[in-house]
């Protein structure tokens, strides 16, 4: 009887962790992905990018980068958008975090859909497009929203945080980020 219960317990644990199997985890290496998008001069300046792109993740001029993989079609991303905006504002306004840049990757969204989402929620951070999900596939098809905090490590990126799902609050997430520096 006890043996059966233990087997059940192990199976349950295995099932609950399966949903995160494909995505890049904390401690992994993150690929140097290509970045494309319609960025204003101010947004390019924020990330230290020049020209019309496409750029590479390596081109972002900071030691740390946080990427939110999201979609206009994802109800969780819609609901969380104001909180993500607050987080970006807090990050951007503090000199303490000047070496951390924040951007979005719109998985499976067209430019029209990106524009609609940014207009609807007043998103101010830069968003890169991935209409055919090429980058999304390259990074293991994470669910949305998914936040990656990356540290530049030579030609590679170390994943300091891989967070799937909405975060609790902008304050709490900032504390989490601070703890990773």
């Amino acid at each position: 009887m006890r043996k059966t219960i233990f087997i059940l317990l192990i199976l349950l644990l295995a099932v609950s962790s399966n949903s995160y199997a494909g995505s890049i985890k904390t401690g992994d290496t993150f690929p140097d992905i290509p970045l494309t998008g319609k960025l204003s001069d101010a947004k390019k300046k924020y990330l230290g990018l020049k020209g019309a792109g496409p750029w590479m993740l390596q081109d972002i001029n900071s030691d740390y980068t946080i990427i939110e993989v999201y979609s206009m079609y994802c109800p969780h991303c819609q609901k969380e958008a104001p909180t993500v905006n607050s987080f970006y504002k807090m990050l951007n306004e503090s000199k303490e975090y000047a070496n951390i840049k924040f951007c979005g990757l719109a998985a499976g969204n067209t430019e029209f859909e990106i524009d609609f989402f940014t207009g609807k929620f007043g998103v101010e951070f830069p968003i890169f497009s991935d209409p055919e999900l090429e980058i999304h596939n390259k990074i293991g098809q994470p669910g949305t929203p998914h936040f990656y905090m990356l540290r530049k490590d030579g030609n590679e990126f170390k994943v300091l945080l891989s967070h799937e799902g909405p975060f609790e609050s902008a304050d709490e997430f900032l504390k989490t980020i601070q703890g990773k520096l």
Partner: peptide
């Protein structure tokens, strides 16, 4: 002991749900 295991199992099931 058996009771504890069953309790843990119930909590886990609730968490997953």
């Amino acid at each position: 002991m058996l009771k504890k295991i069953l309790y843990t199992l119930a909590v886990l099931l609730l968490t997953c749900t």
